[in-house]
């Protein structure tokens, strides 16, 4: 019985952790959206900043991956 409650908590926690991915999605969208709006204003500078955009995406996405990892840990490792 005790184990069941722990399991339940872990699964609920896993589900909650998944909401973090939404934040990552917002972040990545924000980065790319701003990049595109900037690129449309000044297309000649866009090519040189693509690498910066990918770094930004990577940083924003990493946090979503962390929440996914927490969910996985709760589901399989706790």
């Amino acid at each position: 019985m005790e184990g069941d409650i722990v399991q339940m908590g872990a699964y609920i926690g896993a589900g909650l952790a998944c909401t973090g991915m939404g934040g990552a999605a917002v972040g990545v969208g924000h980065v790319v959206g701003n990049f595109i709006s900037g690129a449309l204003r000044n297309p000649s500078a866009a090519a040189s900043q693509t690498a910066t955009m990918f770094i930004g995406i990577a940083f924003a996405e990493a946090l979503g991956i962390f929440s996914f990892l927490v969910a996985l840990l709760l589901m399989f490792a706790v």
């Binding site: 996405e61 990493a62 991956i65 962390f66 996914f68 990892l69």
Partner: peptide, 13 residues
């Protein structure tokens, strides 16, 4: 940490 988990997490996910 972020460097490694980003890659592994993306692939795993």
């Amino acid at each position: 940490v972020s460097h490694s988990i980003r890659l592994a997490g993306n692939m795993m996910a």
